[in-house]
């Protein structure tokens, strides 16, 4: 068992988002909501601007008709190595774990929303209401994921339940985890394969292959958040010359 502890610590999960492949199709958005028991976003919730989407597709307009472009940018919790949300939590409900995940512990959270306020990526969502599902829709709730109650912050977990399940399954079968065994719901759904997830400490993993990519950038790199989500820039022949943000 001691061996297992060491193994855990050597893993570091990262995600690569190839913006050039993203079509904005929303498959990841819904896959995430299905997997993680995210409360249903009703029309009024959208109108109040309190919709919860752990992963979202941001769309930017560039220019005006007829020379107009739409840009898509998937944004999820960046699992910062140096996370601004962590030090502000008065009850240690959010912390950094040994696999590089920024963890939100729902049963510790008291809902101060300080972390939401401090997150530069706006990927933390607050449960303003008790989540309700019509009785029969409760059947599809994922038993691996806690249903968050009112007054609790929530955010993307890199599908930690899948990571744990993957680790347990490997343990159960007495084998090593291999690249691709664990995939968060968004990456598994993504029809263009724009999202790639894996262990960066494994030099043969697919994510490691992107480490030297020329298109690589981080969101709001200037903040020094040391994010674990790596973006690969959109390619466009008509791109204006402009420096990195």
């Amino acid at each position: 068992m001691v061996i297992e502890v060491i193994e855990r610590q050597t893993r570091k999960w990262q995600m690569v988002v190839d913006v050039d492949k993203c079509t904005g199709c929303q498959a990841c958005v819904i896959a995430c909501q299905v997997e993680n028991n995210v409360a249903l976003n009703s029309d009024e919730i959208f109108r109040q601007r309190r919709a919860t989407e752990w992963i979202r597709i941001e769309r930017y307009w560039e220019g005006e008709f007829p020379n107009v472009k739409a840009r898509f940018l998937p944004v999820l919790c960046q699992q910062c190595g140096n996370a601004p949300c962590e030090p502000v939590c008065p009850v240690f409900a959010t912390y950094h774990n040994d696999q590089g995940l920024n963890v939100q512990v729902y049963n510790r959270c008291v809902g101060t929303r300080y972390c939401q306020n401090n997150c530069p990526y706006h990927v933390r969502f607050f449960n303003f209401w008790e989540p309700v599902w019509p009785e029969s829709l409760r059947n599809h709730l994922n038993p691996d994921v806690t249903v968050r109650s009112r007054g609790v912050m929530e955010k993307c977990t890199f599908c930690v339940q899948r990571i744990r399940r993957g680790e347990l399954d490997a343990d159960r079968e007495g084998r090593q985890l291999k690249d691709g065994d664990i995939q968060p719901a968004c990456a598994q759904a993504c029809p263009t394969d724009a999202l790639v997830f894996g262990d960066i400490s494994d030099s043969n993993s697919r994510v490691s292959g992107f480490a030297e990519n020329k298109r690589k950038f981080h969101l709001r790199e200037e903040l020094g958040t040391d994010t674990n989500v790596i973006y690969l820039a959109k390619v466009d022949a008509e791109a204006k010359d402009r420096s990195h943000a």
């Binding site: 068992m1 774990n97 040994d98 512990v105 691996d144 977990t157």
Partner: peptide
């Protein structure tokens, strides 16, 4: 006692 992991995500997710 048994040096098993005590990370929150081991039990809470």
């Amino acid at each position: 006692k048994y040096s098993a992991p005590t990370d929150c995500t081991i039990c809470h997710r």
